[in-house]
Amino acid sequence: TTYKLIANGKTLKGETTTEAVDAETAERVFKEYAKKNGVDGEWTYDDATKTFTVTE
Rank of each mutant, 00 (worst) to 15 (best):
T1G: 09
T1I: 13
T1E: 11
T1F: 13
T1C: 13
T1W: 11
T1Y: 14
T1S: 11
T1N: 13
T2I: 14
T2F: 09
T2R: 12
T2D: 05
Y3G: 02
Y3S: 02
Y3E: 02
Y3N: 02
Y3I: 02
Y3K: 02
K4P: 02
K4T: 14
K4C: 07
K4E: 03
K4S: 05
K4F: 14
K4D: 02
K4M: 09
L5T: 01
L5G: 01
L5C: 08
L5Q: 01
L5F: 09
I6M: 06
I6E: 04
I6Y: 07
I6P: 01
I6H: 05
I6D: 03
I6V: 11
A7H: 13
A7P: 03
A7S: 11
N8C: 14
N8D: 09
N8I: 15
N8M: 14
N8K: 12
N8L: 14
N8A: 09
N8T: 11
N8E: 10
N8W: 14
G9F: 11
G9Y: 06
G9P: 04
G9D: 04
G9S: 13
G9R: 04
K10G: 11
K10H: 13
K10L: 14
K10S: 12
K10F: 11
T11V: 11
T11F: 14
T11L: 11
T11D: 09
T11A: 10
T11H: 14
L12F: 15
L12R: 07
L12E: 05
L12V: 10
L12W: 15
L12K: 07
L12D: 05
L12H: 14
K13H: 11
K13G: 06
K13T: 11
K13P: 09
G14N: 08
G14K: 12
G14Y: 15
G14L: 15
G14V: 15
G14A: 13
G14H: 14
G14Q: 13
G14P: 08
E15D: 06
E15V: 15
E15T: 13
E15G: 07
T16K: 08
T16A: 10
T16S: 10
T16E: 05
T16Y: 15
T16I: 15
T16F: 15
T16W: 15
T16C: 15
T17F: 14
T17V: 10
T17Y: 15
T17P: 02
T17C: 11
T18G: 03
T18D: 02
T18P: 01
T18C: 15
T18F: 12
T18K: 04
T18L: 14
E19N: 12
E19K: 12
E19I: 15
E19H: 13
E19L: 14
E19A: 07
E19Y: 15
E19G: 05
A20W: 02
A20Q: 08
A20G: 03
A20S: 06
A20I: 02
A20D: 02
A20K: 02
A20M: 03
V21P: 15
V21Q: 12
V21R: 12
V21I: 13
V21D: 13
V21N: 11
V21G: 09
D22F: 03
D22A: 03
D22L: 04
D22H: 04
D22W: 03
D22S: 07
D22R: 03
D22Y: 03
D22I: 03
D22P: 01
A23T: 08
A23D: 05
A23G: 04
A23Q: 12
A23C: 13
E24Q: 13
E24L: 12
E24M: 11
E24V: 11
E24I: 12
E24K: 13
E24A: 14
E24H: 10
T25A: 12
T25R: 05
T25W: 07
A26M: 02
A26K: 00
A26Q: 01
A26Y: 00
A26E: 00
A26T: 00
A26D: 00
A26L: 01
A26S: 02
E27H: 10
E27I: 07
E27W: 14
E27S: 08
E27P: 00
E27Y: 15
E27R: 10
E27Q: 10
R28H: 08
R28V: 08
R28Y: 06
R28C: 07
R28M: 10
V29K: 09
V29W: 14
V29P: 00
V29Q: 09
V29I: 15
V29H: 13
V29D: 05
F30L: 05
F30H: 01
F30T: 00
F30K: 00
F30I: 01
F30V: 01
K31E: 03
K31A: 04
K31Q: 08
K31F: 05
K31C: 05
K31V: 06
E32S: 07
E32P: 01
E32I: 07
E32G: 05
E32V: 05
E32M: 08
E32A: 12
E32N: 08
Y33E: 03
Y33C: 07
Y33S: 02
Y33F: 12
Y33T: 04
Y33V: 06
Y33Q: 03
Y33K: 03
Y33G: 02
A34Q: 02
A34C: 14
A34T: 06
K35W: 10
K35A: 13
K35Y: 10
K36L: 13
K36G: 06
K36V: 12
K36T: 09
K36Q: 13
K36R: 13
K36M: 12
N37K: 10
N37I: 14
N37F: 14
N37P: 01
N37G: 05
N37W: 15
G38N: 09
G38V: 03
G38I: 04
G38T: 03
G38L: 06
G38H: 08
V39P: 02
V39R: 02
V39E: 03
V39F: 14
V39S: 03
V39Q: 05
V39L: 15
D40Q: 13
D40I: 14
D40S: 13
D40K: 13
D40N: 12
D40L: 12
G41W: 06
G41Q: 02
G41L: 03
E42S: 10
E42I: 15
E42W: 11
E42K: 11
E42N: 10
E42C: 12
E42Y: 13
E42Q: 13
E42V: 15
W43K: 00
W43Y: 02
W43R: 00
W43I: 03
W43T: 01
W43N: 00
W43A: 00
W43L: 03
T44I: 08
T44C: 08
T44S: 13
Y45R: 01
Y45D: 00
Y45T: 00
Y45F: 07
Y45W: 03
D46G: 01
D46C: 09
D46Q: 04
D47F: 07
D47A: 14
D47M: 08
D47N: 09
D47C: 07
D47V: 09
A48L: 12
A48V: 12
A48W: 07
A48M: 11
T49H: 05
T49S: 10
T49I: 06
T49E: 05
T49N: 07
T49R: 06
T49F: 05
T49P: 01
T49V: 06
T49L: 08
K50H: 11
K50T: 03
K50Q: 09
K50V: 03
K50E: 03
K50R: 12
T51K: 03
T51P: 00
T51Q: 04
T51F: 02
T51I: 06
T51R: 03
T51H: 02
F52E: 00
F52H: 01
F52R: 00
F52T: 01
F52G: 00
F52C: 00
T53K: 06
T53F: 10
T53V: 07
T53M: 08
V54A: 02
V54E: 00
V54R: 01
V54H: 02
V54M: 06
V54L: 11
T55Y: 09
T55R: 06
T55H: 08
T55D: 07
T55A: 06
T55G: 05
T55C: 07
T55W: 10
E56K: 05
E56A: 09
E56H: 07
E56V: 09
E56F: 08
E56I: 09
